[in-house]
Write a protein that binds this DNA or RNA. Sequence first.
RNA 1: GGCGACAUAGCCAAGUGGCAAGGCAGAGGACUGCAAAUCCUCCAUCCCCGGUUCGAAUCCGGGUGUCGCCUCCA
Length: 475
Amino acid sequence: MIKLYNTLTRKKDPLIPVQEGKVGLYACGPTVYDYFHIGNARVFILFDVFRRYLQYRGYDVTYVQNYTDIDDKMINRAAELGITVAELAEGFIQAYEEDAAAIGVKPADHQPKATAYIPQIIRIIEQLLEKDMAYEVDGDVYFQVESFPDYGKLSHQNLEELELGSRVEIDARKKHPMDFALWKKEKPGEPSWESPWGRGRPGWHIECSAMSMEYLGETIDIHAGGQDLIFPHHENEIAQSEGATGKPFARYWVHAGYLNINQEKMSKSLGNFRTVRELRQKVDPMVLRFFMLSAHYRNPINFSEEQIQQASKALERLNTAFFNLQDRMRKVGEGEPDEIEQTLLRKLEEAKQRFIETMDDDFNTAEALAVLFDLARETNTYLNRTEGQKANVIRSILDFFRETNEIFGYMETADYSDLESEIQKMIDQREEARKVKNWALADGIRDQLRERGIILEDTPQGVRWKIAAEEKKEA
RNA sequence: GGCGACAUAGCCAAGUGGCAAGGCAGAGGACUGCAAAUCCUCCAUCCCCGGUUCGAAUCCGGGUGUCGCCUCCA
């Protein structure tokens, strides 16, 4: 049974979807006015992993992640660049797709753009107006927070508290300071759509309500986002959606912690704003993925050179174990497992169980990784045996590493069994040289191959090769 | 002012009542032509002070510190 920490209830709740066996998952996607940054990458990677894990556990997952392609930031940026908002969106949606693919984030099942759902947005606003939960002022439409008694249930605040802490300038046209815009009247030069209240554009929050209902129905299972979206974005989504439908909007609210840079919040003014576009030139995207999984998703993490270095070494350990298992499997035959191998296979089964238990418990990826490291040590010890390994035993272990990698997606699991014959020839030459103790020649060949990204390691079972990490990155 | 999170080894990080996971770095050892990989061993009075309990990193109370939200933000 999967348990999820639910911001709404402030505890871990067992996952019970609306429809048995199916999970509707909605995540707030990027506003496409710029390249996305490393903090965005954290949530994209996390939710990508959650989705994959739910699938691994047998759920039929429908994952929806929107593009916000109309809002103040879009309008301002387009004006700066002297292009239309649509052109801006198109360019950065493409950039998003490239960067997301680079960090191994699979596309969602549906990636709707807000501007394609104006009729649905208008319909929800109309419903709210009919119920007197919204009101129109000069072509703007506001949601009336006092009409929704549960307002504040997600952020666990009440209206008075929110109002006291508010730093927002009070708009006298609003009935309550916390009332928020569902529809904004057209301003000159801005994109706008026809509506019952005249030309205008949707407010920020309403688009997510419209798109999630469109694809996942009036009650979705899991709604995910960064912690900073709890208020006001998600709070407002709940108010307007539940106000309109009278049904619970989302059963589980999952929020990811922040990513800081060198202990500081990332911001443009501090000049520590790191985009994935820029970063992926320097950092192996697989290391980035590993790094994001190395801490619990709700805790803040700190991005720094040192942390990335540590993550890189740690991931290399897993990769090496995988590589070495593959190498040995090619060299040994099948057979009945002996006593030691039976113990190892038992440990493998334990690892599988532990992996599921820990991931079921609110996606504890950090502990799940520990399970894999433990198994890596066991198998390394097994490989240290001078002889008698069996291909079938090794295959079982490799399968588990592959399976978990289907979820985490940080490893290169391709089988490099076919070496170029020229390289194989060099390896053979070196072996000849070693036999006659011509160390200079042998080491020379090893150095040459190293330059070409092939690392040779001598073991009691003969030479073993692998592809250097930096070469894999370019491949 | 309101709401909340966090504080575990040099660094990162799990663990929410029963002798403190895992990774990185470091020290020593094994293996080895060299190198690499690997294995073994070592490295924590769990921020402080009280309390509950046979037993607390874990529960309760009180401190201290760091961070976040209440404005756009993943």
